[in-house]
């Protein structure tokens, strides 16, 4: 009986393990699939891509499959914005010449990589149930995101408007799981102790509103 259970477990784990090997081979040069033991400021400056050890709690699978086949720039300033910033008037600008485009894969590979990424749940760092969509108030969320809490200083809620040092959020509703948006906004340093998004002292009401608004953003709207 124990042997049958073991065999079943091996059969279930088999394809996932193979996918993980593909993920490591194709994406491991730039992305971390395990929580880094050396999460230093220097590491933040030298890493080539965002960490993916919590990708399964962060992304929507359908978005991953689509994006991996036809990647678009999510970070206008690159992985580490300062490396591409140049001084100027009336303000500093990002030089896109040094920002390498993300490689694309075919549909079959995208499907497999998405499966592998969705297994990386970050050890429970995201509580998916923390977001309560029933209380969502999008107009208050938009106000909090813009004027009241200043999220637009670094994030774009519409293409071409807002800051460039952080990921764009104008298609966040397609890309991100609401529970991740809430968890990251609540405490960015839980994901990386040195990341340049500050932890704002937000009330739960504010967190819910901002998350609902970000989760409502879709490309082209």
């Amino acid at each position: 009986m124990k042997f049958i259970a073991f065999l079943l477990a091996a059969l279930v784990a088999g394809p996932a393990a193979a996918a993980d090997a593909d993920l490591q081979r194709q994406c491991g040069e730039c992305h971390a699939f395990e929580k880094p033991a050396d999460a230093t400021l220097d590491r933040l400056w030298t890493r080539k891509g965002p960490d993916l050890w919590y990708a399964g709690a962060k992304f929507n699978r359908a978005w991953l499959v689509k994006w991996l086949q036809k990647p678009t720039a999510i970070r206008a300033g690159g992985v580490m914005w300062f490396k591409h910033a140049k001084p100027g008037e009336p303000r500093d600008t990002i030089d896109p010449a040094g920002i390498a485009p993300h490689p694309s894969v075919d549909a079959a590979a995208a499907d497999k990589l998405a499966d592998a990424l969705m297994t990386l749940t970050g050890g429970g760092i995201v509580d998916a149930a923390a977001f309560k969509p029933e209380g969502a108030n999008l107009s208050m969320g938009k106000l909090a995101f813009g004027k009241l809490r200043g999220c637009t200083a670094c994030h774009q809620e519409k293409p071409g408007t807002g800051g460039v040092s952080a990921p764009e959020l104008y298609d966040a509703g397609e890309r991100l799981q609401p529970g991740y948006v809430l968890a990251y906004t609540k405490n960015p340093q839980a994901f990386d102790p040195h990341i340049w998004m500050p932890r704002l002292e937000l009330t739960d009401v504010d967190l819910q509103r901002i998350t609902a608004y970000v989760a409502s953003l879709k490309a082209g709207e």
Partner: peptide
Amino acid sequence: TYCAQCHGVSRNGKGVNTVG
């Protein structure tokens, strides 16, 4: 890492995020 995004790479208040 943290300040220049708004306060500028030349520390002059003209960071990449000041547009809006």
